[in-house]
Computed example of a mutant assay.
Amino acid sequence: MKVGLISPVVTAVPGLVAAWEQDAGITGLATIAETADRLGFHHLTCSEHVVVPSDVAVQRGATYWDPLATLGYLAARTTRIRLATQVLVLGYHHPLEIVKRYGTLDRVSNGRLVLGLGVGSLQEEFELLGAPFAGRGGRADDALRALRASLGVEEPTYSGSHYQFADVVVRPTAVQRHVPLWIGGSSLRSLQRAATLADGWVPFGLPLDGYRALLDQVDQPDGFEVVLPAGHLDPIGAPERTVAKLEAAQSAGATVLNTTIRAESVAHYVEQLEALAELGGL
């Protein structure tokens, strides 16, 4: 069973963030990451919002740590656990920008990068960044093709509907020639995009039977990762319920589990990880 973590601390969604997370900082997060690394957890995550309008922050929260800086620091504090963006918004970046910046992260982490990528839905953020919102789906598809042609390649060449480049050098680039690409989103279109242009699907916001219904409509290639949320887990306080949630996500089609851990402090979170590792057979 591959079990990953929705990282605490790095986001603060109203109603969901625990009080201790606001004070834990990078030191607390690193302690959690080191423990997860030692115990054999598959990945940890960091999301991306560059800027959130004040009225939107009431629902989505305003705290979003930058994934490149955050995961770069955690790369130096860990040795095995994968570092997953969940997710970068493709429309905010030129593909070669991602190739260079996150290719460097892959190199400094010795090949542990997972690029979680999404089309994006917050129109106000697109507009504030000067990124086109209309047509973002087609642009994202072309960006994915450009990324696949370029990650791990020092002299990439690509000619597509939105991006074209040749006679360029990107150095350093990723250690992995095939960096795993996971597509976020909870629509049928996002799953189709993932199955045809990427390596996995990392949805959110639906009940498990909703994910199962979508998965039943799309053929997935060999090795395709379905990264489903297992919900909020309390391995020490409710071990049987924790196991049931893990098994339910697997039954819905998960090949990788995304978990959120209930905790009251960094120390408690570490204890919960120890218990979850035992329950999950890591």
Rank of each mutant, 00 (worst) to 15 (best):
M1T: 12
M1H: 06
K2W: 08
S7E: 03
S7Q: 11
P8D: 06
G15F: 07
G15A: 10
E21L: 03
Q22Y: 14
A24W: 04
I26G: 10
T35M: 13
D37M: 02
R38L: 11
R38G: 01
R38T: 10
L39E: 05
L44I: 04
L44P: 00
T45Y: 06
C46I: 10
E48K: 00
H49Q: 13
V52P: 02
S54R: 15
S54A: 15
A57E: 05
V58W: 00
G61W: 02
G61F: 00
T63P: 05
W65E: 05
P67Y: 02
T70F: 03
T70E: 08
Y73P: 12
L74S: 09
A76P: 11
T78C: 06
R80P: 06
R80E: 14
R80K: 14
V87W: 04
V89N: 12
L90Y: 05
L96M: 13
V99N: 04
R101P: 06
G103N: 07
N110G: 12
G118Y: 09
L122Q: 08
Q123V: 15
Q123H: 14
G130L: 02
A131E: 09
P132K: 02
G137S: 11
A143F: 08
L144H: 03
L147W: 07
L147Q: 04
R148D: 11
R148I: 03
S150N: 07
L151F: 01
G152H: 08
G152L: 06
V153K: 08
F165Y: 15
D167A: 14
V169P: 10
R171L: 12
R171N: 14
A174E: 01
V179Y: 12
V179N: 09
L181W: 06
L181P: 02
S190V: 09
G200F: 07
P207W: 08
D209V: 12
D216H: 12
Q217H: 04
D219A: 14
G223I: 06
E225I: 14
L228G: 01
I236R: 15
G237Y: 15
P239G: 07
A249V: 08
V266H: 04
L273N: 10
E278H: 15
G280K: 05
G280Q: 04
